[in-house]
Design a binder for these strands. Structure first.
Lengths: 342, 342
DNA sequence: CTGAAAGCGCTAACAA
DNA sequence: TTGTTAGCGCTTTCAG
């Protein structure tokens, strides 16, 4: 089914294609009667100009590429919602790619996005979360960013000056740990995350600092990174429960691991928060509805998405933008943490 | 930053652009030495052909449009993951739109997708879930589908013969209710959903039928539709708890309402499933990790996404496809439902 | 094996 | 106010 083109409209209206183009884009005055006739025809055939043809000429697509590591982790849809809201304002749509942390897939998508000539991309997860990113992966992204406006969300590439938007995870961690300390906890554990990823090492460092600032000692055997899944939270809580001495509270790198930890503790007969306090990170929508409701740290995922788009738009307009835009996390106090039993 | 074109390559290689095109697409034999030179240049400049130019010519974009109602409901990311997996196989990418159930937004996105000349779309939620869809909304979609291959997921438009892929929600509901009946429940309530939406009316009807088949009477005051949110689940459970006579089990239209219902009951001092059984629908990832773990019905969201793409691809290849492809739901027995107390 | 040329659908000078 | 024309970057005959 061939779609109708500007030629079809022009022919039937007995004008040139330029005139049709003019009424479509309202780019120059057109006589009322011809305009009316053309508009009627556009209506009649439900004509939509071909974005590829236009894009080819104007060298833009109206498409923003978004690369996320894991759509099934509710944090990302939340960011996406923010991205979409903001993108829509300016008539941008977005091309989505789920990389499941596979670097090859990231490369592939990067390549596709270049072919498609997206107007800009927002990159999350994968290589930009690595403490030590392989040189060729880093270079690939740098080269990409040389050609297409790029913003990295919650990550970065050391030694490069790619534009970044990030929540201050260090401050967020401090908030959580301080809360636990104020509640009276003295033995606090750390669960989840992967040590080779910056999002974890940042939290690890902030955790140690907050403990020290609070006059507390960190017990190395209670430092239990693993991964970001619910199961890893469970696993490490089991681990903890098997010890003769346990912390009275744990900080988890995200809400998933916190949920896992609570699950494992509950199954083992503990009551959260009476027998142990747990705080999470991210404030996913379910945190509010879990039993018990999760005390956690909000990264303002939605805001993060909006901000990323706005920075990206500024770049697309060739405006000057800050290398790093930081969002302040907030502590969300709910039910999963309270003062320890005497 | 102008990107390099096929002309740049041709010039430097001292050949015509046709030859370059040939090596890119491997569409005709090219002398080894020239091919080598060209490939080297492509490498050197990191040349990527402009997809718009190619698309304009071949009249295809390699893009699949996906319209979803609510990204923050975990059911949809799950479907998307399936969509993506399958789309990738054939080199397709996807444009995503979140409509938050806003019909105007649906229209807008439909229009954008036509402009962008996507190769096909997958439509979920919104108008195709309405029991009575306004004529102009229906017509808009029908016209769209006339021009661009379209598959509707878990919905439809009565009176039209648009291609559909859907989980058998009726069978799924029966599975859940039968399970409850086998467990020994005789008083069963129904929570959540909106009566003007087919996904709800289908479940409502199947619920009534299953009750009847099981020799049970449905109590109208226990039929409590509302919406699909966690809060609506809470609200209706409160409602139920305030009655002098209550059911011993409730069927919820989705896992969100089930979670809400459990939450409200727990807060009111009941213990689930000891004091009341609850079954959900969808089997979102968290169903497995909630406390208690949710007994629910899986719609095979991931499979739904894959199937939709495969049907769509068949349509794009002008193959004949079935009007309706059905997926069988499965009962997932976990902890939130058990036999009632004597 | 390779080049010339037409054309995909549209916009934007430049004339008229 | 309108038409003519030259591309945007690429693929694909059709001739060599």
């Amino acid at each position: 089914m061939r779609q109708v083109t500007i030629y079809d409209i022009a022919k039937e209206a007995e004008v040139s294609i330029s005139t049709v183009s003019r009424v479509i884009n309202d780019t120059a005055p057109v006589k009322g009667s011809t305009r009316a006739k053309i508009e009627e025809l556009i209506q009649k055939y439900n004509f939509q100009p071909n974005a590829m043809a236009r894009g080819l000429l104007k060298n833009e697509t109206g498409i923003i590429g978004v690369i996320v590591p894991d759509l099934t982790n509710p944090f990302f849809p939340e960011v996406l919602a923010g991205v979409e809201h903001e993108a829509m304002q300016s008539g941008h749509t977005f091309l989505l790619s789920n990389t499941i942390g596979d670097y090859a897939k990231e490369s592939e998508y990067l390549s596709i996005m270049r072919e498609k000539r997206v107007d800009g991309i927002i990159f999350m997860g994968g290589r930009i979360n690595l403490k030590h990113c392989e040189e060729h992966l880093a270079q690939e992204l740098v080269q990409f960013a040389n050609v297409i406006p790029t913003v990295l969300v919650n990550g970065g590439l050391r030694g490069t000056d790619l534009i970044r938007v990030a929540a201050d995870e260090s401050a967020g961690t401090a908030l959580a740990v301080q809360h636990l300390i104020e509640l009276g906890h003295t033995g606090i554990g750390f669960i989840g995350g992967e040590v080779h990823m910056t999002t974890t090492s940042i939290k690890l460092r902030a955790f140690r600092k907050a403990m020290k600032d609070g006059g507390l000692k960190v017990r190395e055997e209670w430092m239990l990174p693993d991964s970001f899944s619910i199961d890893s939270g469970k696993r490490q809580m089991h681990h903890l429960l098997a010890m003769k001495e346990r912390p009275t509270a744990v900080f988890c790198v995200n809400d998933y691991t916190a949920i896992g930890a609570i699950k494992a503790a509950t199954e083992a007969g503990l009551s959260i928060p009476d027998d142990m306090s747990v705080v999470g990170f991210d404030d996913i929508p379910l945190a509010h509805h879990f039993i018990p409701e999760l005390t956690t740290v909000s990264q303002q995922a939605n805001e993060l998405g909006k901000t990323a788009v706005n920075v990206l738009k500024a770049m697309m307009n060739k405006e000057k933008v800050k290398k790093l835009t930081t969002l302040e996390p907030q502590l969300i106090v709910r039910q999963s943490a309270r003062s320890p039993r005497k």
